[in-house]
Amino acid sequence: TGDQLPDFVLNRAGFSNSTILVADRNFGCGSSREQAVHTLVDFGIRSIVAVSFGDIFQANCLKNGLLPVTLPAEVVRAIRHGLDASPGTQLTIDLENEQVVDPDGLVYPFSVDPFGRSCLLAGLDEIDYTLSLLDRVNDFERTETSAPNSH
């Protein structure tokens, strides 16, 4: 009917405007269509912290501007516990330095695919990245078509 479920975690006070989703293991498994990622982004989610991700879902995240962060199970569990105990506290993800900072100031390093990271930092998707290389593509085409043995 379109009514919000008051008990759903993202509808509760302190969580309703979250941009980071803290999940568990195998997040996104079975959600291989890009629409799953688009829906999360449209909702306002910019990053997901989890123990693991479905492979296709994780790739789709990076292609569509959503940062998947993988951390050890005990770290994710501790972060979730801390957020549950104090709704509205701040969890920070520093993509440039590849680290998560919890509300207590504890820092957890992570790594993400370098190409995906550079695209996210630049605000580019794969099409934007390709278009940023258009001058180089045009130069290559001019060079190849003017070469003596070109077909």
Rank of each mutant, 00 (worst) to 15 (best):
D125L: 09
P87N: 14
L121C: 08
V107E: 10
V112K: 10
T145P: 04
L95C: 12
T130F: 08
Y129A: 08
E126Q: 11
V137R: 07
Q99I: 01
D104Y: 09
V137A: 06
V107N: 02
T143C: 08
R142S: 05
P103V: 03
D125T: 05
N138Q: 02
L120F: 11
I93N: 03
Q90T: 11
D128W: 06
E141I: 14
A147S: 12
A78C: 01
P103I: 02
S146D: 14
V107K: 13
G105Y: 11
D125W: 05
F110C: 05
N97T: 03
I79K: 02
T89F: 01
I127K: 10
E141P: 00
T92N: 07
N138K: 04
A78L: 02
L131R: 14
T89H: 05
D104V: 08
P87G: 07
P103H: 04
Q99H: 04
S111L: 13
N97D: 08
P148W: 05
P114E: 13
S111G: 12
G88E: 09
L131V: 06
D135N: 01
G123E: 00
Y129M: 13
R80M: 03
F110Q: 00
Q90L: 10
A85N: 04
L133S: 06
S118Y: 05
D102H: 04
G82E: 13
